[in-house]
């Protein structure tokens, strides 16, 4: 019974989870994506893959607060927008230094998270959802009214972020690899974070806040810190997105964008490391393929959400866990329970 938690860095092969295997294979394929799309002559898919990876980083950041911290933020698109405009607005003034733009994206997003989080985190449940959404919309309407930067027409970016040395974002393959590396780093950061003392404090606050306070945790401060880290990471993804699309507009901040991001996280499997990536992949898959055949693709997406919520706890990640449970003939539980499960007393 007392299965010792493996403390060595690389567990024995038999202990590696199916989700981990699955993701290793998927990531390997993605690492070769530029080559594969080159051979098959389908550069369009490289652009799909780039978008998928950028949005995954945003989803990973949302998962940190939503999945691990139990903070259902409905305004995360605002951070994408802030990150994107942190590239766009300096560009407008001929400032295209990449370090400066990306640094600005991270700092502005973190500050915005700090200020709004300090207010939002005083509320709970539905109120938190509503107020994060309200702040998101505030950012949306702010950029909508900034005529100088294109207002609702948006802003085209003719010169991408400049980095010294060989990095050149106009080269699609290079941009792809920068995004890919960023995703890997984000995943690694979140992995370390959620398993650290800080991560335990965050996960405890999700599971049972009253108990956390009773044993001596200032849950508010830890949550706020988590929110700031998440916001900064999401802002970073926005800066990548601006470089990918060469264009930004307030539309990328609208609350429906935040909703889509939530869908990706929940459908992939909240509180799991790879869930956000998987969820984003499914979402973009629907968007890319189904939209070609039917204008009602969002309807089918809705059906999919219903099925996943009703029948597969823990999203795609949960599904893979289930398969593993059948194959290995022992129950495999997700590391973090879904919000519904957490209240089983």
């Amino acid at each position: 019974m007392a299965r010792k938690a493996s403390t060595s860095l690389i567990p024995p092969l038999g202990e590696i989870r199916f989700t981990t295997w699955f993701m290793l294979i998927v990531l390997l394929i993605f690492a070769l994506a530029p080559v594969l799309t080159e051979i098959t002559g389908t550069p369009f898919y490289l652009s799909v893959a780039t978008r998928l990876i950028i949005l995954s980083i945003a989803a990973v950041s949302l998962n940190l607060v939503l999945g691990y911290g139990g903070m259902v933020s409905f305004g995360h698109a605002a951070f994408i927008g802030l990150g994107a405009y942190a590239v766009g607005i300096p560009f407008y003034y001929d400032i295209t230094n990449g370090f400066l733009q990306f640094g600005l994206a991270i700092v502005v997003s973190a500050l915005f998270a700090l200020v709004t989080g300090a207010i939002c985190l005083r509320t709970k449940g539905v109120y938190f959802i509503m107020i994060t959404m309200a702040f998101g919309q505030m950012v949306y309407f702010t950029f909508l009214s900034l005529n100088e930067y294109g207002a609702d027409d948006g802003l085209s970016i003719y010169k991408l972020s400049q980095f010294p040395g060989p990095i050149d974002f106009t080269n699609k393959v290079q941009l792809y690899y920068v995004c890919f590396a960023s995703l890997i780093v984000s995943l690694f950061i979140v992995h370390r974070l959620v398993n650290s003392r800080f991560g335990m404090a965050i996960r405890g606050a999700k599971g049972n806040e009253e108990r956390m306070r009773a044993i001596g945790f200032n849950t508010y401060a830890y949550r706020l810190t988590c929110y700031v880290i998440s916001g900064a990471m999401c802002g970073f993804s926005g800066a990548l997105l601006a470089n990918f699309t060469n264009f930004l507009s307030p539309e990328m901040i609208d609350w429906t964008r935040s909703g889509e991001l939530m869908f990706m996280v929940i459908f992939g499997g909240t509180g799991t490391l790879f869930g956000p990536f998987l969820g984003t992949a499914v979402f973009l898959g629907f968007y890319t393929f189904l939209a070609q055949f039917t204008t009602y693709w969002q309807l089918w997406l809705g059906v999919l959400i219903l099925i996943s919520v009703l029948f597969v706890k823990g999203g795609i990640n949960g599904l893979i866990d289930k398969i593993e449970g059948v194959v290995r003939k022992r129950p495999v539980s997700a590391p973090a329970a879904t919000p519904a499960e957490a209240k089983d007393e």
């Binding site: 398993n195 650290s196 800080f198 335990m200 996960r203 599971g207 956390m212 973090a336 499960e341 089983d344």
Partner: peptide, 28 residues
């Protein structure tokens, strides 16, 4: 904490009293 192990539950209570928990990198 229903979704944590027995040991994790108690270790978390210990952690609360071992200084701040702004330790982001080492596994708990």
């Amino acid at each position: 904490f229903m979704e944590m192990t027995v040991l994790q539950n108690v270790a978390l209570a210990v952690q609360a009293h071992r200084g701040h928990s702004y330790r982001f990198w080492r596994p708990a």
